[in-house]
Amino acid sequence: MGILEVRDVNKSFGGLKALNKVELDVEEGSVHAIIGPNGAGKSTFLNCLVGLLIPDSGSVNFNGNSLLGIKPHEINQAGVSRVFQTPEIFSDLSLLDNVVIPTLASRDGAFKLNGWKRADQDSEIIVRAEHMLEDVGLIDKRNMHAGSLSRGDKRRLELAMCLVQNPKLLLLDEPTAGMSRADTNNTIDLLKRIGERGITKVIIEHDMHVVFSLADKVSVMAQGTVIAEGSPEGIKGDPRVQEAYLGGAHL
C-alpha cells in the first residue's frame, strides 16, 4: 500500500492530451522522483495532486482518501505540502512571519478568529518557527523582508514553510532550478536531512545529480504518460528512457 496512489489520471487542454493514463504509487517514507523532458506533463500532474487542476478522469488517493474535488487548503490540511517552481512566499512579510503563518495554520486549522491575542507573544508558535528557520539556516535573517532574499534563500524559506507543518507528503517542483551548484548541493543536504524525519517526498527534477543523490525510486514521464519506473540505477540503463529523455544519448 502506497501513501499516494494515482490511477488512470487523464487531463486534456482542448486538443492537447497533457496527461494520458498516468499511474503512480508512492511508498510511505520514500523519495520518489519524477523526471522527463520539457512538456512531458510533470507540472500538470503535480497541479492535479494539489487541487490546482482537476483531472478529467481517474483517481488520486492519499492515505486512502480521494484528493479530487477538494480545495487546495483542505488538501494541505490533509497533510500535503508543495514547494513551487518559482518560490511562493509572503514577500511583504518578515521571514519569521512567513514561517509563523504555516505554523499557525497547522495548529489552528483553516480558519480561526484569533483577533485579540498578540501573535508575537505566542511562544509555542514562535519557538517552532524559529527552530525551523534555524534548521534551514535562515535564522539570522528572521526580521528581513522575505522579498529581499536571494533566489536560493527564498526556496529554502519556502521549504521551511512547508516543513514546519510536518506534512505527510511533500511535493517539490524543481527545487533546485536556477540555483548555483553550491546552492544545489546545500539544498540536497537539506532534503537529505529532512529525509530523516520520514516525510514522503515527490520531486520533479531536471538535474540528474539531484535525482541520483536523493531518489529511492524514479518514474519517467514522456508525452503525458509514465513510460518507465524503477530504481535510479535501473532507470539509468533503460533504453526507452534514454530514447525519450535524452534523445538517445548515453548518461
Partner: peptide, 22 residues
C-alpha cells in the same frame, strides 16, 4: 494578532495562503 497576520498574508500572496492550508 494572528488574525491580522493572516489578513496580511492575503494581501501578500493569496496563492501561498491556500497552499498553506488557510
Amino acid at each position: 494578532s494572528p488574525f491580522g497576520m493572516m489578513l496580511r498574508a492575503v494581501k501578500s500572496n493569496s496563492n501561498r495562503m491556500s497552499y498553506t492550508g488557510l
